[in-house]
Structures are given as C-alpha cells and as structure tokens.
Nucleic acid binder design. Structure first.
Length: 301
DNA sequence: AACACACTCAACCGCTCGGTG
DNA sequence: ACACCGAGCGGTTGAGTGTGT
C-alpha cells in the first residue's frame, strides 16, 4: 500500500448526489433486516452503489425513525443558542441535548438563522447601551443559562408521572416524543439511555424493534417484499424510478406499493399526514426520475 | 415574464478519534 | 508503542427554491 490514507471506497464506482426513493427503500429494508453493524460493507450487502459514509449520513440525518422533522421550536432554538455559547461548534454534542435533531440540521439552523439573530442581538444591545464587550458576553451568558435552567425545571416538573419514553417506540410517531418527554430527556441528560433502548442490530435485540415498528407502521407490509416487487419491474436497479400510478391496476401488489409509498412520503416529509388525495405531481416535486406521464395520475391512499 | 440574487439544506470531503491486533 | 481501520465530526459545497427587481 502506498503512502497516505486509503480512500473509504472506490470513488469511481459509487453514486453521488441526492438519494432516490428506491435507494432509500433499499437502505431502510436492509437495516430493517440486518441492522447497520458495519457501514463500510453495508452498501455492497444492501446492493447500493453508495459509499458507506453516504449511507450512514443518509440514515442518521434522514431515514432514522426517530428523526424529528419540521421547524425548530423557540425552545429548541434557545437551547441551541445557549449550548453553542458554552460548547461552540460542537454540533454533535449540542444535538445530544435535542432528541430527534441531527448535528447536521442544527449546524444548518445555526448558520442560516441563529448566528444572524445572535449577531443582531449583540449589535442592538451594543448600540443601545454602553456595555463593554466583556460585560455583554457575561450578561448574555447569564440570560441563556436562565432560559435553559427554567426550561429544565419546567420539563422535569411537567414530565413527572408521564409514561415512559420507551412506550412510544412502537408507534408511527416514534420520533415525536411529547414535548414533556423531550424536555425531560434534556433535563436529565439521559438521551444515551433512551437511545440504548433501541436495539442497533438484530443480533442484540430481544424485542425486535423493527418488527414492532413495522407492525405499527403498516401491519401487512414487509418492506423487503415491496422492494422486490418494486425492483422486479426495473432491470437496472441503479436507475430505479418511482412506480407508475395507473388507475387500471387493481392488484394486491399495487395496493401494497401504494401503502409503502404513502408511508415513505410521510416519513420523508414529502406530503402531509392528513392528506388523502395524492397526485403524481406532488411526488414529482420531490423525486428524481418521475416521468411526465406520471404527473397526470392521481391515487387515493 | 425573465432575470439576478439570496437563502436553504442535503450531501460530500477531509480530518480526528477510538478500538483493535 | 505503533499501525491500521472504521466511525464520527465539523467545514464546505452546490443544486434547488424563494424573493426582489
């Protein structure tokens, strides 16, 4: 072997760029069955033309069942500001205080919103007072600590007596722990314990978390079967596209596929959970490789 | 309507860290 | 003690989208 670090994968043989729904499905299906013991070997085993790092990132930042979606709440933003003040750019550490939020997401929010806001706040205060920089930083720190402390106290009090976080794991809204739980988790700094209750691989799981999740998400649906079915109509799986939605089809497979797509849409945030009418055009907005023909089709879910 | 610019965020890259032999 | 390897982290990029002119 020559000098320098060996690349993590053969760059010429891996696909880059945005993930397609077919790739997401493959990754979900594989991890559902096998867990993710070794990210480096996972892409090959799962039949993905992706770098292991890319798979890991996709799973952690997007596909993981406990990823929380949607805008950050003011409480979360305050927490980030406070933690950034004390921890700096240690995004993963900050993320550990915000269950369901990823380091990448927090980093983006900081860089796009909070940094400016804090900067503006600093500027305004500086203009309106004769406070020195040193005094300002000290005062500001106290302010953030006050906010965080009150949050923690409130959370601990309001979470007392509520059900165990683990009881949420079997539901579709696995990621949506109640605000009280989230805050309590922050307050107790016990996120590691909570996460450790989710088996990370099939070998170590007494209770099959994924089976439980699967059952609640869609009782009759095995994602690997859907993947097989989904893939069987496409000879080149690296170019998998969204299935064609035709109203002529009335097979069970079509129904199964609809169910899965509905689930995936919701999980990936491609549609609203309450929507009952689904158009190809909606999907087209979020999916590479959806043909123009598909845009005219409508399906009821 | 068309264009330019600003903004967002998913994804990539390169580095460090920690475990293992 | 050392080298190797995989996982994880933080900085950066760039495609897509929104907004103003």
């Amino acid at each position: 072997m020559g000098k320098g670090r060996a690349p993590c994968c053969d760059k010429s043989k891996v696909k880059k760029g945005p993930w397609t729904p077919a790739e997401d499905l493959k990754l979900i299906s594989f991890i559902q069955k096998n867990g993710h013991g070794n990210w480096r070997s996972l892409p090959k085993q799962a039949g993905l033309l992706r770098c292991g790092k890319s798979c890991r990132l996709r799973w952690i930042n997007y596909l993981r069942p406990d990823v929380k979606r949607g805008n950050f709440t003011p409480e979360e933003e305050n927490t980030i500001i406070k933690l950034h003040d004390s921890l700096g750019n240690r995004w993963s550490k900050i993320a550990s205080y915000l269950p369901g939020r990823t380091d990448n997401e927090i980093k983006n929010v900081w860089n796009t919103h909070l940094k400016k806001r804090v900067g503006t706040l600093n500027k305004d205060i500086k203009i309106n007072t004769t406070t020195t920089q040193e005094e300002f930083e000290t005062n500001n720190k106290d302010q953030y600590i006050d906010v965080a402390t009150s949050l923690i106290e409130e959370a601990t009090a309001s979470a007392a007596g509520s059900c165990s976080p683990t009881s949420s794991y079997g539901s579709l809204n696995l990621c949506n722990l109640s605000t009280d739980h989230v805050r309590a988790a922050e307050a107790r700094d016990n996120q590691d314990q909570v996460i450790n209750e989710i088996p990370s691989d099939s070998a170590g799981a007494d209770i099959d978390f994924w089976d439980m999740l699967d059952t609640d998400l869609s009782p009759d649906l095995d994602y690997s079967k859907v993947l097989d079915m989904y893939s069987s109509n496409h000879s080149d799986q690296s170019q998998l596209q969204a299935p064609h939605y035709t109203n002529e089809s009335s097979s069970d497979q079509y129904d199964e596929c609809q169910k899965w797509l509905r689930y995936l849409e919701i999980e990936l945030g491609l549609t609203q959970t309450s929507t009952t009418t689904y158009t190809g055009a909606n999907y087209y907005e979020c999916c590479d490789g959806f043909t123009s023909q598909d845009q005219n089709n409508t399906m009821q879910v």
